[in-house]
């Protein structure tokens, strides 16, 4: 466990040096601030607008950062050959992989906290409130982004960043549209296509579950049980993705 923590800490240190992450973070915060200007145009709706755009930005940019970190962190170590020095130590490849995942999870936590702080501060300045429901929304966004990162890590365990980025983006899109795809199922007559679609709908994570923006915007309370259930739902996907990634990574040659 100490080894996993050490790898996670050094992975975090490496990740936070990446200028691309700061660019993404900059755009996210810029969008949150811009929503103040846009929101002020609608009478008595600025807080609601700000919340809507702010949570959307955090969610979107959090997932972009997760995909970026997931597809690059292990690949870069292979490309730069720094991996040889690490894997030649008495550590299991699973330990290394979990450490990298831990580093990504830490980086995402810091990035999301910064974005959440930007939104919360702006909300407070505009007369809005920051309550447990909003913190819960931040938490679910975090769980989603960690889950997306685990998918990216899984894809990165057997392919290049471009391919794994493309696949992860595909999973992300399906996850966003999974409810629409389920509704579309009834209209598909071709059995093979229907079975394929059924399989996709059954396996794909429903990312809409992690977004409670509508409930927050219109003041519908979300219970703690929901937060717990969705967290477990996300954890389930993370465990499966990481298990599969470690299974593949253990069999790889590092030439």
């Amino acid at each position: 466990m100490k080894t996993v923590a050490a790898i996670a800490l050094y992975s975090f240190r490496e990740a936070v040096r990446n200028k691309i992450l700061y660019s993404i973070l900059f755009f996210a915060i810029l969008l949150i601030l811009l929503s103040v200007v846009l929101g002020s145009a609608s009478v008595h709706q600025d807080s609601r607008f700000l919340l809507d755009i702010g949570l959307f930005s955090i969610n979107l940019f959090g997932d972009i950062i997760a995909i970026f970190l997931g597809i690059t962190s292990v690949f870069q170590e292979i490309e730069r050959k720094t991996l040889y020095n690490v894997l030649s130590k008495p550590i299991d490849r699973a330990t290394y992989f979990l450490g990298k995942f831990g580093g990504i999870a830490m980086t995402l936590a810091v990035q999301l906290m910064l974005m959440a702080a930007a939104l919360s501060t702006t909300l407070l300045f505009r007369g809005g409130t920051v309550d447990l429901q909003l913190l819960g929304a931040f938490w679910l966004t975090y769980v989603e982004s960690v889950m997306i990162a685990s998918f990216a890590l899984f894809c990165g365990s057997f392919s290049t960043p471009y391919v794994s980025g493309f696949i992860t983006l595909g999973i992300w899109l399906i996850g966003r549209l999974v409810q629409e795809l389920a509704a579309f199922l009834t209209k598909v007559e071709e059995p093979a296509a229907r079975h394929l679609l059924q399989g996709i709908v059954a396996l794909a994570p429903d990312l809409n579950l992690f977004t409670i923006t509508t409930q927050l915007t219109y003041g519908y309370p979300v219970g703690m049980a929901y937060f717990g259930a969705v967290t477990l739902y996300g954890l389930g996907y993370i465990v499966v993705a990481m298990g599969a990634a470690i299974f593949i990574f253990r069999r790889r040659d590092f030439i």
Binding site: T3, I7, Y10, R13, E14, K81, N85, V86, K89
Partner: peptide, 23 residues
């Protein structure tokens, strides 16, 4: 390893500290 590559943002003593953790 042949032609070793390291994390270039670390100092030499930091790198060795990291590897000491791994050992």
């Amino acid at each position: 390893p042949e032609t070793p590559h390291f994390y270039d943002y670390l100092r030499a003593d930091e790198l060795l500290t990291y590897f000491a953790h791994l050992y």
